[in-house]
Design a protein around this nucleic acid. Structure first.
Length: 573
DNA sequence: GCCGTTTTCGGCCCGACTGTTTTCAGTCG
């Protein structure tokens, strides 16, 4: 997809213009355009194909000039002005301004005065104490830069959603012990449910910030303290994750929660709406022209004051949420409590850790009505996949167990490998015995995009009404998605009544939010499944649900919110 | 460079923390 690529080029142009100390508003224009492209819910190629430059200019932040640059990229694969700009500076200078604590001004100073144009040169100069004598610099700044380099080298970049969730909970648990903390809310990209989280943003409501700040910076999980102020502190934890804490009074709760949740683009938009009314929005509230607070105690007010419907955190990505909210068209998003079953899980028959009975019992605890048991087929050897005979025996076993287990309906399924030629790794007569089939690619990930797309579509065509599991095969932080034309897959899913899976495992979260929305628009139904390999993994469902929420999905879009009877009727078993 | 039921020119989100200053610049979110 070109959206991210172009966004990255615009960001790079912004960085270069910053070093050049160009017009700051021009820089912001590039940054804003990049942000909007990153979160765009349509493919730029499609936008351009459908309406040319004019259609591109309908994207917020894209005007005459930038639409031409996008066109240039789509046609030639590069943007000449970026190349020209990059030639004005040594290559390494961009990595300098990405060091925490270093910005364009400092980078420029160090380049001009000391000829520093790489991370390595910077490190050596700082260690030799050459930075502290420059104007505006000092011992502490030099030490800070060295720390920033260390932080960057040790930094893990982004963290998985469950990792971030667990660490946020650990901080919340400690802060809750303080009587001064009236309310604690993890915000930021974690609250918006982004697939990975860069850092934690935790909001605390209190009239006495000091004890909270002091406790926060001295928690056991703190590796180093980046900032320790009266109402705002920042720390780095032992796992390399950064956490920011902010304390505001109760009357500012809504405004602060909104501000701290983001996204950045969403926040800026609200503040611009306020400006137009002659008001001001900050993390402390909504204020009129005379500086009186007229809203912001609750988060609902942050929208209602502007005549907008409440926008759930997962939708605050500048993907059309303001237009929808103004028109009263914010969907009623699916909730974890809507889930009635799990349609993808493994048992000891293949690579699961728990037996059929144990999985059923755990699912009953979650008050599920049904589960689909989906052990692997023979091609997936690493997972001890079952051949035709063993698959058949396993199905009998599931059906027998279904009769003996009360309170939950066990459905007999299989996770059938889609072989490289698009055929299925289980004979037709055994497939017939399944209640519901899950199809998945587990091999030959390196196929060319056209072949992979054809392979998957062929499999769906062979087995209409099945579920396509983890449609891109990605493992966040480990393995790239295989090349596949998901728009074509979605189209085929609509044609063959196939269901697309949102795999709830924090490493997968695939389908992504972006394509959930595309699937919905195409009338394709979604299954949110955990792919659990042990009883405790059934609890990962919440991450799938939040991804579906980010894809604007409602209860009726997700098949495993349906009662069993409806699922049987629609899927025909 | 974008944008406009006040404007096609003149605006452009808002505030905290740090360090080097002695009133503020740079950076961050």
């Amino acid at each position: 997809m070109d959206n991210k690529e172009i966004a990255s080029i615009f960001n790079q142009i912004a960085e270069l213009l910053e070093i050049k100390q160009d017009n700051p508003f021009k820089i912001r224009a590039y940054q804003r355009a990049a942000r909007n492209l990153e979160s765009l819910s349509v493919d730029l190629t499609d936008v351009y194909r459908s309406g040319g430059l004019k259609a591109l200019q309908e994207i917020p932040g894209i005007g005459h000039d930038l639409s031409l640059k996008i066109e240039e990229y789509l046609k030639t694969g590069k943007i000449a002005s970026q190349k020209a700009l990059a030639r004005e500076f040594p290559k390494g200078i961009l990595e300098l301004i990405n060091i925490p604590g270093m910005g364009p001004k400092t980078a420029q100073l160090l380049y001009k005065k000391l000829g520093i144009d790489s991370l390595n040169k910077l490190k050596m100069a700082a260690q030799a104490g050459k930075l502290q004598h420059l104007p505006g610099m000092g011992e502490k700044k030099e030490a800070n830069i060295l720390r920033g380099i260390g932080f960057k080298e040790a930094s893990h970049g982004r963290f998985l959603l469950d990792d971030a969730t667990v660490h946020a909970a650990m901080i919340v648990e400690e802060l809750e012990k303080l009587k001064e903390a009236k309310k604690i809310l993890p915000c930021g990209s974690l609250r918006r449910g982004q697939e990975t989280v860069g850092d934690l943003d935790i909001l605390v409501i209190s009239d006495k910030p000091k004890p909270i700040m002091d406790k926060f910076v001295s928690l056991k999980l703190v590796k180093s303290v980046l900032a320790h102020g009266e109402t705002k502190s920042a720390i780095v934890m032992h796992n390399g994750m950064q956490a920011d804490l902010r304390v505001v009074p109760a009357k500012s709760f809504g405004a602060a929660a909104h501000y701290f949740t983001g996204s950045k683009g969403h926040n800026i938009h609200i503040r611009q709406l306020a400006q137009k009314k002659g008001w001001k929005v900050s993390e402390y509230g909504i204020f009129d022209a005379k500086g009186r607070q007229i809203g912001g105690q609750t988060e609902e007010e942050m929208f209602s004051k502007f005549g907008l419907q409440y926008i759930p955190p997962e939708l605050r990505e500048m993907r059309g949420e303001f237009t929808a909210a103004a028109a009263g068209k914010i969907p009623r998003l699916i909730e974890l409590g809507d889930i009635r079953g799990d349609l993808h899980m493994h048992t000891t028959a293949t690579d699961g850790e728990n037996s059929l009975e144990e999985m059923a019992k755990a699912a009953k605890h979650l008050a599920y009505e049904y589960i689909l048991i989906t052990d692997h087929t023979q091609s997936t050897r690493v997972a001890h996949g079952l051949d035709a005979g063993k698959s058949s025996a396993n199905l009998h076993k599931i059906k027998l167990a279904a009769k003996n287990i009360s309170g939950i309906r066990l459905l007999a399924g299989a996770e059938i490998d889609i072989l490289p030629d698009g055929s299925l790794d289980l004979p037709g007569e055994i497939i017939k015995q399944l209640d519901l089939a899950v199809l998945a690619v587990h091999s030959n990930f390196k196929m060319p995009r056209e072949q992979m797309t054809a392979r998957i579509i062929k499999a769906m065509q062979r087995l209409p009404g099945s579920i396509l599991a983890h449609p891109t095969g990605r493992l966040l932080g480990e393995r790239e998605a295989y090349a596949v034309d998901l728009n074509a897959v979605i189209k085929a899913a609509a044609k063959y009544r196939c269901i697309l899976e949102v795999n709830a495992h924090p490493k997968r979260l695939d389908l992504t939010d972006f394509y959930c929305r595309a699937a919905k628009a195409a009338g394709v139904k979604i299954a949110i499944s955990t792919d659990a390999h042990a009883t405790d993994q059934l609890g990962l469902m919440k991450y799938g649900v939040i991804t579906a929420r980010r894809g604007w999905l409602e209860k009726q879009d997700v098949v495993n919110t349906w009662p069993l009877a409806k699922l049987q009727r629609v899927c025909g078993f």
